[in-house]
Structure formats: C-alpha cells, structure tokens
Simulated assay, not measured.
Amino acid sequence: MATRQSVDECLQKCEDALRYAQEQYKSGTKQEHYHDHEYTDAMQKVEEAVNDIRHLANSANSQQREQLHRMRLQLQQFQNEMVLLDHDPGSVGGRLQ
C-alpha cells in the first residue's frame, strides 16, 4: 500500500516537472531552437513523472489512484503539446530538411 507521504511526494515531483516543462515550452515558443537541451530535459522529466505515477498507482488505494490518474492526464496532455510544438532543431518551418 502506498503511503500518503509517498503519494504527496510523487505529486509534488510531478507538479515540479510540469512547471519546468511549461517554462521551457513558453521559452521554446519564443526562442525557437536556442534551448534545445533544456527543452529535451523538460520532456524527459515529464516522462519520468508519468512513469513514477504508473508505478506508484499499482500500490495505491482508490482515492490515491484517482489523484495520480488526474495528474497523469495533465502531464500527458502537456507532453503532447510539447511534442506538437515542433521544437526539432533539424526542421525549418515545421518540415524536416
């Protein structure tokens, strides 16, 4: 059974990852490809947070699973937005060269 503390810590880590990703996304829309490392790092942190939720949900009670599920949906939705931003340094105008 997941402890309340472990769920709270996981949710906090997820919120931190989401906040960092939002900052990088905002920066990515303005500065195009100047911060590719940070953008990729933010995407990786979001993916790690999603994986942490999946693992923790296996030992969570129903209320905890619901909290984790909502956070996972937020993370995955933002993850999709990041992918769609076209922040690929090898592309120009949305098309690969």
Rank of each mutant, 00 (worst) to 15 (best):
70 R>S: 03
14 C>W: 05
26 K>Q: 13
4 R>E: 15
24 Q>N: 09
25 Y>Q: 07
34 Y>T: 15
14 C>S: 15
33 H>W: 08
18 L>I: 09
72 R>E: 08
10 C>P: 05
41 D>I: 08
70 R>L: 01
22 Q>M: 06
17 A>H: 05
11 L>G: 02
38 E>G: 07
58 N>L: 01
36 D>M: 12
50 V>N: 03
33 H>Y: 13
27 S>T: 12
70 R>V: 00
69 H>G: 00
3 T>I: 02
40 T>W: 06
60 A>K: 01
4 R>W: 05
57 A>S: 08
31 Q>E: 14
68 L>F: 04
4 R>M: 08
42 A>D: 07
49 A>Y: 04
69 H>W: 01
58 N>C: 00
53 I>M: 02
35 H>D: 14
52 D>S: 07
14 C>F: 07
44 Q>E: 15
8 D>E: 15
43 M>A: 04
40 T>N: 12
24 Q>M: 13
10 C>H: 03
44 Q>S: 15
73 L>V: 12
39 Y>P: 14
12 Q>K: 13
34 Y>C: 13
39 Y>C: 10
64 Q>S: 03
74 Q>C: 06
50 V>W: 02
37 H>N: 07
11 L>A: 04
47 E>K: 15
47 E>S: 15
8 D>K: 06
20 Y>N: 08
74 Q>E: 15
22 Q>H: 08
51 N>I: 12
39 Y>A: 10
24 Q>L: 10
50 V>L: 06
17 A>T: 06
48 E>I: 14
36 D>P: 08
42 A>F: 04
26 K>G: 07
24 Q>H: 03
19 R>S: 09
12 Q>T: 08
65 R>C: 01
45 K>I: 00
32 E>M: 14
45 K>Q: 13
51 N>T: 11
15 E>R: 15
64 Q>H: 07
72 R>D: 04
59 S>G: 00
25 Y>C: 02
4 R>D: 13
52 D>Y: 03
